[in-house]
Design a protein around this nucleic acid. Sequence first.
DNA 1: CGTCCACAGGAATGACGGGCGG
DNA 2: CCGCCCGTCATTCCTGTGGACG
Length: 376
Amino acid sequence: MRPDYIPDELPHRDEQISKISSILAPLLRGEKPNNIFIYGLTGTGKTAVVKYVLLKFKEYATKIGRDFNYSYVNCRYDDTTYRVLAKLAEGIGVKIPFTGLSTSEVFNRIITALDSLSTSLVVVLDEIDFLVKKRGDELLYRLTRINEELKGSKITIIGVTNDVKFMERLDPRVKSSLGEEEVIFPPYDAIQLEDILLHRASKAFKPGVLDEGVISLCASIAAKEHGDARRALDLLRVSGELAEREGASKVVRDHVLRARMEIERDRVAEVIKTLPLHGKLVLLSLAINPGGTTGEVYNIYRDICKSLAVEPVTQRRVSDIISELDMLGIINTRIVNRGRYGKTRVINLNTDSETLIKVLSEERKIEAFIKNLRSR
DNA sequence: CGTCCACAGGAATGACGGGCGG
DNA sequence: CCGCCCGTCATTCCTGTGGACG
């Protein structure tokens, strides 16, 4: 049930699998496939499909004696030019020290190795938007042009992202090269999610331990949250863990509902932990006064700052903090025009305010303030 | 029909701390 | 190893805006 598990069957992704396969087919004839750009929201199976297809290709290629190599790089974790290149080198069996070389030296070593190997290298750049956001598209540009320098081998790039606007930020030359082929992964609907869950559950759970309706409940909850299969699987897994912890003989619907709460609380707690102090204070103001406008929230925020003897930030900054909280999915904002009474944002919580306050009270500075608040 | 409210949100700039690269 | 650069948080100043009100 873990998110990094790659199943041997991927329901409802046949279309994407066959499309990617046909794009990569030239590999089996020893030719260079087009570069591929893959787009889809989180939990739509992008990574699993790409890994799956490459695995199958590798198996088959080995069998028919048409070998090729591939490297998988997750740019969220390997977010420097050096580390991406090192991963890439790893894919063709070139050892690169974890530090000490200049990037151009690594580049040269890769080129030399590729020339002598005369193979095809497929590079998967997962969450490629992270790389570009941090380093720009220079590396991408060089990678797309590398084939011109190579004699023996060819490189194919598969870029994966969930950022819609990603392509717009690219250099046009990189854009046209990377976007030779595009594959889109639509979100799953509730019925498809149910299928996926059934499929996985048959391997992870003993027959009969899942009560009736448990799977469809997980599926419908996840479908409402943008058809994210990872969320659906997490929900089922945590439900199971919850039931196990309690020594229950069956996983019932109630476990799912509680698992949902637990996941939500963990997620919120995780986000809040990394929030800067003023982010937390603004969130506290929001929890005290849900449904308020920016101005109202700012007044409450200032009061909180005063009683904590903290210097408040400007309203401009608070406005940005609210936007950030919105992006993180903790709150919901809506811009309203109230004519004579101005234009502002109405802010609603996405999470139960009690939960928020409970999590926030773990912050030392805020703890006392909340105790005080409670006693009134 | 023009005003003006209550902000949204862009641009320029700066302090600061950590990590990259030479 | 050390300086510089870059990302983050923040300020200041600013222009933009939909519609109720007079």
